[in-house]
Amino acid sequence: MTDRETVVRVESTCAGPARVRLQTGVLAPRLVARTAATVEVALVATTATLLGGDHARVRLEVSGGCRLVVRDVAATVAYDGRGATALWDNVIQVGTGGVLVWQAEPFIVSDGAEVRRSTRADVAEGGRLLLRDTVGIGRSGQTGGSLTCRTRMSYAGTPAVAEDLDLSPESRALPGMLGNARIVDTITALGWRPTAATDHFELAAPGAMARRLIRDAHASDVDSTWADWRSQLD
């Protein structure tokens, strides 16, 4: 059991490459590449995540003029908690003119796992965020445990996305929650409006959300949307 925070903080310096601060928690950040303005970090699991009683905390911060690209090395599996809840909190801050891209790998909730996740993202005016979040209920052949996801995102101090997703077995059985899907695959863009398409949501704040509900992770066609929106940040 651990609750040390994983931190990736990127700040611009007047001259030379961006300053990077890394701190290891449940995930260990590994610097993959660094140029004057762009930092690329991989998040690597340090233990068998995620177990009952764990409290994973991830903080990603990027200040003005810098670009942080984060990727996960592998999917995260939440294992049978044997009655104990696991917590996972993400905190994301993007400063004015900063760019943060996080292509998270799937988060899978096994039978017996009970997980509460939260994601808080605050993007300052002129900052941009692109986030991929994929949650799956049950490993192959399982019915899966219980998951709640609380998401609060703001842009320029204004609420942009607020969502409490209750994917407990009782809630997700209701019609209109998951249909017959077991994976919720979501891409959120904040701070700019990706090219419009009929199959994604345009947020009231500058931003968009593309979401697919699927049975099989390999069947998600949201990859092309990711590639498209990703290219719009370059």
Binding site: D164, L165, L178, T198, D199, F201
Partner: peptide, 22 residues
């Protein structure tokens, strides 16, 4: 206050309603 407003979502229903425009 606005922050008090709960935010429960029904993802499938949301996608269905979104598709209704077309």
């Amino acid at each position: 206050t606005p922050a008090d407003i709960p935010a429960p979502a029904a993802p499938a229903a949301e996608i269905w309603q979104h598709a209704h425009a077309t």
